[in-house]
Every structure is written in C-alpha cells, then in structure tokens.
C-alpha cells in the first residue's frame, strides 16, 4: 500500500516530531559541550577563556566523582533489584484468586501518582524523622534507639524511597504479563507432578522475560536522572555520601556556580547514560523484537 506519494506524505508527517526532538537534543548538548571547554565561573566573571580539558580533569581527580558514579549505579541497580523481586512476588500474590482485586490494584498503584517531591518529603518527615517520624515511634515503642535513616544510611534510604515510588509500575506490568499466562499449561505441569517452584522456574519466569525487559529499560531511563528525591531528603549528604552524578553536576552549577565544570559533568553524564544504554540494548534488545 506504500506508493511513492504516500511515502512522501509519511515522511512529511514524521518530520515535525523528528525536527523538534533533534533541536531539543542538539542545542542544549552543543551548548553544554561548548561550556565544558570554557572557563566560566559566575563568581569570577572576568576570568574566562578556553579551559582545555581542565574541567573534565577536575572530575577525574576528585574522589567525590568516583563515589558519585558508584552511587548513581548503586541507586539504579538497587532500585531495579528491589522493584523486580518484590514486583514479581506481589504480582504473583495479587494474581491468586482473592476478593476485591479491583480495589487492591488501586491501592498498589497509588504511589505511582504521588509526585517525587511529595513522596520524598513525606518519607523524610512523617516516617524517617529521628524524633517525630513514625518509624522512630515504632523503634521507641519496641524499646530500641530510633534509627537515623538519612544520616547513617543515606543511600539505602534514598533507594528505599525511590523503590516505593517505582514498585507499583513494576508490579502492574508483571501482573499484566501474568494474567496472559495460560492456566492450562500450569495445570498440565501440576498434574505431571511439577512442584510450585519448578512451575515458577520453567513456566512463569520465561513468560515474564519480556515484562522484566520492559521494566528494566523504562526504569533505567528514569532512574539515571533521579534528582528530586535526593534534593529533598539528603541534599547529597552527609558529606558526599549520597551524591549521585546528576546531583554533583547540580551542586557545581547552582552552589559552586561553576558553569564550565557543571557542563563538563553534564557531558560525562551523557556518556555514562550512553554506555548504560548500549549495554542494555545489547543484552535486552533481543527480547523486545516482535
């Protein structure tokens, strides 16, 4: 059905999207690349000129940088692990015959609708606060010392909060996938004497591969840029303990007011995202082909 003219029309229809996305991507990227090689400090505006690679070298020589890279990867990996493991378990549970599956789904999906600043400040103040938080009250009630979540375990706490936000997404996708699994196959396996564990291992899990791929891909895109949760709760601290790469760049731009360095950090972040994307696509792309 594709004639010459319909192909031309089709290109014309795609063009606006491609053009605006290209501009949206290339203009900030080009500017960032330009700034990355410049000396550009808002606090000393008279000093300017080319910086060579010094803005980049500053990162590689800073011990905080390697911590930030590892924090970024730990955050992405930690949240992925938690949401996938618990997502699969909760989806398996909800998929069982239960009363009130509709309301159940509504309760489980709710955290997804909570905007990140609200989620972060509610967890920080109402739950993790060492004096007034509910978790501290619980600890005191059990005769224990309240745990200083954000001070002593900043990364784990941030990972926990972000996992709470993303668990509904993972659970819902796994639930959708489970519901398309044929029950005949499972019953046949059960009659042949397959244990619950081996039914899960050889029938349910292979069926879920695609769903897990989707969860990993989409969540990684969003998790690499996580900013608001850290900004609201730990501000990257204590020290640099919970500083991720996006937050380190933000600190250079807004607190140190060093635009050149922030831009160099931006370029490093883009490269890191591309490396992660490359490995993701290579290892998971085959599951997505239809």
């Amino acid at each position: 059905m594709a004639t010459q003219s319909s192909r031309a029309t089709a290109r014309l229809m795609v063009a606006p999207s491609v053009i605006v996305l290209f501009i949206w991507m290339i203009v900030p990227l080009a500017l960032t690349l330009w700034f990355a090689f410049r000396i550009y400090r808002l606090l000393s505006p008279d000093r300017n000129g080319w910086a060579g690679f010094s803005n980049f070298l500053w990162y590689f020589n800073s011990p905080d940088f390697w911590l930030a890279i590892s924090n970024t990867l730990v955050l992405v990996g930690g949240v992925l692990a938690i949401t996938i493991v618990f997502g699969v378990l909760i989806a398996l549970l909800i998929d069982q015959p239960v009363w009130g599956q509709g309301p159940l789904r509504i309760l489980v999906i709710s955290p997804f609708f909570v905007m990140p600043p609200v989620a972060a400040s509610v967890w920080e103040n109402l739950f993790m606060h060492p004096q007034n938080g509910l978790l501290a009250a619980g600890a005191i009630g059990l005769g224990m010392q309240p745990i200083l979540f954000l001070e002593q375990y900043p990364m784990s706490s941030v990972i926990f909060i972000v996992s709470w936000e993303w668990l509904p997404f993972a659970t819902l996708i796994f639930l959708t996938a489970l519901q398309s699994l044929s029950s005949e196959q499972l019953e046949a396996a059960e009659m042949d004497g397959a244990s619950a564990l081996s039914r899960f291992r050889y029938i349910v899990m292979p069926h879920m591969t695609r769903a897990i791929t989707v969860v990993v891909l989409i969540q990684t895109i969003f998790l690499l840029g996580i900013f608001g949760e850290i900004f609201t709760t730990t501000q990257g601290g204590p020290g640099s303990a919970s500083t991720t790469l996006p937050y380190m760049i933000y600190k250079q731009a807004v607190i140190a007011k060093d635009i050149g360095r922030a831009a160099a950090g931006g370029i490093i972040a883009v490269i890191l995202a591309n490396i992660v994307a490359f490995f993701l696509m290579r290892s998971m792309g085959k599951h997505l082909d239809t």
Binding site: M25, P246, I249
Partner: peptide, 16 residues
C-alpha cells in the same frame, strides 16, 4: 526518539 530521554536533565540544566 527514546534515547533522547536518556540525557539526564541535570546535565543540560545550564543551557536550558
């Protein structure tokens, strides 16, 4: 198109 979302927002904050 999806890869344009991979760019961390903080990276392009200043130009934007």
């Amino acid at each position: 198109m999806l890869s344009t979302k991979m760019m961390p927002a903080a990276a392009v904050l200043i130009p934007m």
